[in-house]
Design a binder for these strands. Structure first.
Lengths: 222, 222
DNA sequence: TGGCCCATATTGCCGCAACATTACGAAACT
DNA sequence: AGTTTCGTAATGTTGCGGCAATATGGGCCA
């Protein structure tokens, strides 16, 4: 599990990172909106935690961009602005949770874990690419309305590809998503899965392009 | 579409109403159980959304009365109490969905939509799939009109499967429903129950498919 | 431009884990 | 004691998924 932390107060960031790592959660830490957008392009995260006030602006403004980079990405906003109005503003912009400062570190950890533990949070939210719709809640997919049968590994790979449809997904990110962090992969097994996925996706007018040396990219057929 | 919203936190209520109205959903808003019962007498709603904790009590207690006032009314319960125990309690009382706070507004909208197009017909605490009818109230079932005898564990498993008819149910969710949360399950007991259920369900034109590595899925025979 | 090298594609094979089914015995309830 | 239920295990079956052999093609360098 890997999360993106965007926080410019270094003391707080350090405290959060060490707390999260004690829970076996990997943390990518950046301190500006610009770096956040770059980070989300280069890796697949399970959750993003944003401080609202950052040196280069209000982090609410980049939520749409983050979601565009990675559909369905759960987002938690931290803020000293804790009034109900601010809360509502944050939630309506698309944040999944809004935590007012000051807060207990353990509470943030608990909320992160709650979000991860509960795919139902985003149940029934579908992503559509071409004639393909992918349901983030239960990992089911339909091609042109017809339900398609996917195996476990195929679901894991397709989820990441679809969430970043139109953008490249690093090969390492795919391996990480389909297998664990520790699970080593010895051969071209991933390629084989991609190959099988391609065949199943053909009726949905969706292609998986390979980006030589980098990874893969899923997009609708032209 | 017109829904009944029972929520005493005014900030949240306002946020929900504006979000729902953006989706062309009319909202009747009240903030107590008493007002909810009065509202449901005076109008026909497509769905009721209840906050669980209200000034005059636990909203679970009025679910039967709501259903009596309007048979088959789909009900979604919102609650800060998100533990599996609370969820189960809510669903067993007859709620159709149980959403833990905090949640994304869009998710509530999605779930409302999902309830509107649900494949299984719900009427008077009974669910029908194929020639099978399952009574949520007392856990009895009939196949093509003939009452069928189910054991306790079979009832528990079938209820979960029927509630999610047409959608996959994680194996872990089934174990959780049939046994306790703490109760460990050592062998293939669950498989055995599924097997026995299959045989009993055959006359009802209902099949339990296994989704390898994930869980099971109940649907009417094609 | 031609050729080499290496990344990726594709396919078949087969082990093995997941699932199915049945039987049996212990325990619980009557 | 009789009956029913449920957990366990034994045995059979399926199909996922890892691996490797082979094919294809892109890109770099001479």
């Amino acid at each position: 599990m890997r999360i993106l932390l965007v926080e410019d107060e270094l003391d707080l960031a350090r405290a959060l990172i060490s707390a999260l790592e004690r829970h076996d959660i990997l943390v990518d830490h950046v301190s500006t909106l610009e770096m956040a957008l770059e980070a989300v392009e280069n890796a697949v995260h399970s959750i993003a935690v944003l401080d609202r006030k950052l040196p280069d602006g209000d982090s609410l403004t980049i939520i749409p961009q983050l979601r565009r980079a990675q559909a369905g990405l759960p987002i938690i906003v931290l803020s000293a602005l804790g009034s109900p109005e601010h809360r509502i503003e944050g939630l309506e912009t698309g944040a999944d949770d809004y935590l007012a400062k000051p807060f207990v570190v353990d509470e943030l950890v608990a909320r992160i874990r709650a979000l991860m533990r509960r795919p139902a949070m985003i149940a029934d939210m579908g992503i559509t690419v071409g004639k393909l719709t992918f349901n983030l809640g239960d990992g089911t997919a339909t091609a042109a309305g017809e339900p398609m049968t996917l195996t476990r590994r195929e679901v894991l790979a397709l989820e990441v590809l679809v969430r970043r449809a139109g953008r490249t997904v690093a090969r390492s990110a795919l391996e990480e998503a389909v297998y664990g962090f520790d699970d080593e992969i010895a051969s071209n097994t991933l390629d084989a899965h991609i190959s099988r996925l391609r065949r199943k996706l053909a009726p949905a007018n969706v292609e998986i392009h390979s980006i030589r040396g980098i990874g893969y990219l899923l997009k609708a057929t032209a």
